[in-house]
């Protein structure tokens, strides 16, 4: 990390993403160029800078089409970026991963049913990874497997069981145990509780919280449920149309958002205690297509604060407060409009 071109105060980070872009499409063959006219490229990611501190849960929120799944795919190496860099624990991660570099970033998937191989027992699933990566000597594989299962709240007796014998929540525990087996530096959790029932969600959220506090695990938590994010995350990054538009510590982001899109998201949360508010920040219509990103600030067509300057300038992500960044030209103006019914600050 000797290149001092980046931020002057380079915080220690276990995962760092710089200037990452991903473009899909843009015709390659002459035939498609003939048939569909000018090239149409989809900018799924348009310059992402992000870092994950050791031992923190960073939540990544955004609506469908915001690019958060694409980012996750690039981070685990199952998609290659068009440009930009990913580094894990200070070392650059190659776009095409080998055995060692893929070990460092592991993932927990949304669907606990398709993420476990129905024909492989729990014990075989874990031992295969432990042996392949030589995590422990062969004689200790069983003990290590049991340790992993205990870590996620399961018992030794599940070693011989097939995934079909488990409920959704328990499958998600198994998926977490599998991800932890290879001792990753970073865990990417892609909507890990949204396929689960409410009463089961809580146990998995508690498990993530425990893993962070006891193992110091660094987790990138992708989610659309903001109540879940608020409960678990230390920091939150908000994505809109392939860009990160706001990053802040969780309580600051939810009590004093500095980007109107974040504000709109908060206003859209169905509330259990308060009734939702109507203060002009709710969004009409749907996110514009990533094929046709608006000029200027990409949020301006839906923004209640937008003015001429927003139509002409594409705002970068700038520091607006302590550990708080926003890509909005009106971030200061927004700070003066308090959120009605704001949740209480973290104690």
């Amino acid at each position: 990390m000797s290149t001092a071109v980046q931020e002057p105060t380079l915080e220690p980070s276990v995962l760092r993403v710089s200037a990452l872009t991903k473009r899909y499409g843009g015709h390659s063959s002459w035939l498609s160029r003939l048939t569909s006219g000018p090239s149409v490229a989809l900018k799924a990611l348009d310059g992402i800078d992000l870092h994950l501190r050791p031992g923190e849960v960073l939540a990544l929120v955004g609506e469908s089409g915001s690019g958060k799944s694409t980012l996750a795919k690039i981070l685990v190496g199952s998609a290659t970026p068009t440009s930009g860099e990913v580094s894990v624990a200070g070392q650059p991660a190659p776009a095409r991963r080998d055995k060692e570099s893929s070990r460092r970033v592991q993932m927990v998937f949304q669907d606990p049913y398709s993420s476990l191989n129905p024909r492989i027992t729990v014990g075989k699933m874990l031992s295969e990874l432990l042996l392949l990566h030589r995590i422990v000597p062969r004689s200790e594989v069983r003990a290590e497997s049991v340790r992993l299962l205990n870590l996620v709240g399961l018992e030794e007796d599940v070693l011989g069981a097939y995934p079909s014998q488990f409920s959704g929540g328990q499958r998600q525990r198994l998926a977490i145990a599998r991800a932890l087996a290879v001792r990753p530096d970073v865990l990417i959790a892609d909507e890990p509780v949204s396929a689960l029932d409410v009463s089961v969600q809580a146990t998995i959220l508690e498990l993530f919280a425990t893993l962070r506090s006891e193992l110091g695990l660094s987790i990138l938590f992708i989610a659309h449920n903001l109540a879940v994010v608020q409960h678990l995350a230390d920091r939150v990054a908000v994505m809109y149309l392939g860009r990160i538009v706001e990053v802040a510590e969780t309580s600051a982001l939810f009590s004093a958002p500095r980007h109107p899109y974040t504000r709109a998201l908060i206003d859209s949360i169905p509330r259990m205690t308060e009734t939702s508010v109507n203060d002009g920040f709710e969004l009409d219509g749907e996110p514009p297509s990533p094929y046709d990103v608006p000029a200027g600030c990409r949020f301006h067509p839906r923004c209640p604060l937008a003015s001429e300057v927003c139509r002409e300038n594409d705002p970068p992500l700038l520091t607006v407060g302590r550990a708080h960044e926003s890509a909005c030209l009106k971030a200061d103006e927004l700070a003066d409009i308090p959120v009605p019914n704001a949740p209480q600050e973290h104690a």
Partner: peptide, 26 residues
């Protein structure tokens, strides 16, 4: 496209191993 195949790739397994041991039986 199943997630368990992606997971096996993340586990650093070779294509041959994934084809024969993970996808084959299914």
């Amino acid at each position: 496209k199943q997630d368990y195949v992606v997971a096996a790739r993340l586990g650093g397994m070779s294509h041959t191993r994934i084809l024969v041991r993970h996808i084959g039986p299914n």
